[in-house]
């Protein structure tokens, strides 16, 4: 294989890694939008909080003398999921539930307010500096000749991609097979009717927020380990990118979120690899605008019929 193909594949692999994490965060947007039709603007902040809690747990556990990396990561992940879920649940309870019958604009402004509030709450509580964590999992796979052209994929990149796929499979099974999953789908169709059939839609919505927050916490943990840095501002841009991914794939559709995330990740990585990294965000946002103009329902989404 020629060198340029190796380079291309390397960029694709890098793009798939970033794309996987966008997809994990995008699930939160897409599920909430699918069920109550609002953009949970504060979802990116839940991801940021997930990373902070993971770091706190990792630092705390290693200070207690636990040094088995699997145990360490496992416990930290559990703690992070619990706390992030509590945030997801409380955000819905405090900022969105009272507004469920209001107009979309009202709920969206409340969500933006929540996002600004959480970001600044963390800034005041933990400081605005970057908090860094040394890398725990080192090394990677090498394809090709070590001296000449090759592709290098680190273990951490593999872990990110595999975890994402596992989460997606698990979530799809949950939605299609479980009783709660069926209730979720029912709510997405018609909340009023679901209530009439004796399903408490408030519980379903709460579960949706908790699932979204848990996946955001998983993404926070993975990216925290991968990049090793957290600050209060990472949630905003990550949330925006993930939302773009959700819209790209068709908001409301779970496979769409996965697809959208991967497309976005790869296109960013190719922009960085073949053009210049400073226009990465411009490409991401332009992609969003173009998709919305020409395919407002996204790649895998269903066209929405406006009901009167």
């Amino acid at each position: 294989m020629s060198e340029s193909i190796y380079y291309f594949l390397q960029q694709i692999a890098n793009g798939l890694t970033i794309g996987s994490t966008y997809a994990l965060i995008a699930i939160g947007y897409t599920m909430v939008y699918g069920i109550i039709g609002m953009i949970n603007f504060a979802h990116g902040e839940v991801y940021m909080i997930g990373t902070y809690v993971a770091f706190i747990a990792l630092a705390g556990l290693s200070m207690l003398g636990i040094d088995n990396p699997f145990l360490l990561i496992g416990i930290a992940l559990a703690v992070s999921i619990v706390v992030a879920s509590a945030y997801g649940f409380s955000i819905e309870r405090v900022a969105y539930r009272p507004l469920r019958s209001s107009k979309r604009l009202i709920a969206l402004i409340s969500a933006i307010g929540m996002s600004i509030f959480l970001q600044n709450y963390i800034r005041l509580a933990q400081g605005s500096r970057d908090i860094a964590m040394p890398s725990m999992i080192k090394g990677g796979f090498l394809f090709g000749s070590p001296e000449g052209s090759h592709i290098m994929i680190s273990y951490m990149q593999v872990i990110i991609m595999v975890t994402t796929v596992l989460c997606m499979v698990g979530l799809t099974l949950f939605i299609t097979r479980s009783r709660m999953g069926r209730a979720c789908r029912a709510c997405a169709q018609d909340i009023g009717m679901t209530n009439l059939l004796g399903i408490n839609s408030n519980n379903v919505i709460a579960v949706t927020f908790i699932i979204g927050a848990s996946l955001a916490a998983v993404a926070g943990m993975l990216l925290g380990l991968y990049y090793g840095v957290v600050n209060p501002y990472i949630g905003f841009i990550a949330g925006l990118k993930a939302f773009t991914a959700a819209v790209l794939g068709g908001i409301g559709s779970i496979p769409g979120a996965m697809l959208g995330g991967l497309i976005l990740g790869v296109s960013e990585s190719l922009t960085g690899g073949y053009l210049t990294a400073e226009y990465k965000d411009v490409v991401a946002f332009s992609l969003l605008i173009l998709i919305l103009l020409f395919m407002p329902q996204g790649i895998l989404g269903k066209p929405e019929v406006e009901k009167i």
Binding site: G113, M114, I116, F117, L118, Q119
Partner: peptide, 8 residues
């Protein structure tokens, strides 16, 4: 912080 809270 207060802006955000106030908006909600």
């Amino acid at each position: 912080l207060l802006f955000g809270l106030m908006m909600v």
